[in-house]
């Protein structure tokens, strides 16, 4: 029987090389960021003036990047092409699993910066502020988002975590 991690990794690797049509992703991403904003409004207080900062999150193992402007009155969260990045103030680069694990407080942001798994350029204060604001959100943002997509979302998240940690026990 094949190792599910290898199977998923192979699929993921193939996906990473494909040109991704961005348009269908946009409403999904907007729905995700609206959900996070609705569930964690205190996050915006910590962001302070950086609610108006334009962040690029470069997913190094996918053929796309994410553009985030965390202004609660005009949220922006959309997929963009890496060769056509919009004007931005801060740039964060890392692979999807590492970024997800940081988002869920499974790995320390400074530690993955020291190990060079996370690369940041541009407005350092904005990035530090975003990191601190997200770190004050308890619970799992990734699980919240996965739950929006039902069983398929939860399975995809579980597979991604399997890749990071090895297979997990099914929750009862």
């Amino acid at each position: 029987m094949s190792d599910p991690r290898e199977t998923f990794a192979a699929l993921w690797g193939r996906f990473a090389d494909l040109p991704v049509p961005l348009l269908p992703l946009q409403p999904v991403l907007y729905r995700i960021v609206r959900r996070i904003a609705a569930r964690h409004p205190e996050l915006f207080d910590r962001l302070g003036p950086h609610q108006r900062t334009n962040f690029i999150i470069d997913l190094t193992d996918l053929p796309l990047a994410l553009h985030l402007r965390p202004n609660p009155r005009a949220l922006v969260f959309r997929a963009v092409r890496k060769d056509r990045l919009p004007r931005h103030d801060a740039h964060i680069a890392g692979d999807v699993l590492t970024l997800l694990r940081m988002l869920d407080a499974e790995v320390d942001g400074d530690a993955i910066f020291f190990s060079r798994e996370l690369e940041i350029t541009g407005d350092t204060e904005a990035i530090v502020t975003l990191r601190n604001a997200l770190d004050d959100v308890e619970g799992s943002i990734a699980e919240d988002v996965a739950a929006m997509f039902g069983a398929a979302g939860r399975m995809a998240l579980r597979r991604m975590r399997d890749m990071a940690h090895g297979p997990q026990l099914e929750s009862v």
Binding site: R116, E119, T121, T124, E125
Partner: peptide, 27 residues
């Protein structure tokens, strides 16, 4: 202070760290 810290990607894929006008390390 973070607003005066800058990380730059070097041509060799290394990283330079700057504080204000000073480069303080290169990795």
């Amino acid at each position: 202070p973070a607003h005066l810290v800058e990380y730059r990607r070097d041509a060799d894929d290394g990283m330079s760290t700057r504080l204000g006008p000073f480069t303080i390390d290169r990795f």
